[in-house]
């Protein structure tokens, strides 16, 4: 295109006025191109090839329950995840049973989980295993609170990457009172708690 323009400007019949306008236009184009290039270049200078994903920092989470209601998905992408390696396999599980439970059985009246997503199975006396059915879990965090208050804190809320649409601005992060929703490089995957403390 610039060739064409230059030719035009050399042509004797084109007025001086047009020349100036072409010159101005070329200048503006160069300016637009350079500013776009510099903004992009500057961003690139501090970019990373990795993608960012949202995760809950379990050390900050206060289990306010907003994860269940504020995710853009109707069944929140926040699920309870169980780090079995931290679990005490207790019979009386603070995450499974209501605080004042009388009978340690699986009756609906004893469950803490409103959707019964936490399953209990017998391993060996006196140990019980607890698993989360993610298709039922709505991320309310009640069990996490219970486990943290009475147990090892092996249950915790985390964002399931399979479900998370990875919004540019996580809707939960905006309302999280503890600023626990953070963006981490995708290669780091999950911010899960690790095993037993020594």
């Amino acid at each position: 295109m610039s060739n064409e323009k230059i030719e035009k400007s050399i042509l004797p019949e084109t007025g001086k006025h047009l020349n100036r306008r072409d010159f101005l236009k070329t200048g503006l184009r160069a300016a637009a191109f350079l500013s776009l290039a510099s903004i992009t270049g500057y961003s690139l200078s501090k970019s990373m090839s990795d993608d960012l994903v949202w995760q809950i920092d379990p050390t900050k989470c206060v289990q306010c329950g907003k994860c269940a209601t504020n995710c853009v998905l109707n069944m929140s992408a926040v699920k309870c995840m169980h780090v079995h390696k931290m679990c005490g396999y207790c019979d009386l599980c603070g995450g499974y049973f209501k605080p004042q439970v009388k009978n340690l059985d699986t009756g609906a009246e004893n469950h803490l989980c409103p959707t019964k997503a936490l399953k209990r199975s017998f391993v060996e006396a006196p140990y019980y295993k607890y698993d989360v059915d993610e298709s039922l879990c709505n991320g309310c965090g009640k069990c996490v609170e219970g486990c943290g208050a009475f147990g090892n804190g092996s249950l915790h809320l985390q964002i399931n990457h399979d479900l998370c649409t990875n919004c540019n601005q996580c809707a939960i992060s905006k309302v999280c009172p503890a600023d626990a929703i953070v963006q981490i490089p995708a290669s780091k995957g999950y911010m899960l708690k690790s095993g037993f403390n020594t």
């Binding site: 990795d50 780090v83 990457h161």
Partner: peptide, 9 residues
Amino acid sequence: TQTIAPRAL
């Protein structure tokens, strides 16, 4: 703990 990896880069 079962986790499903994020969308591949």
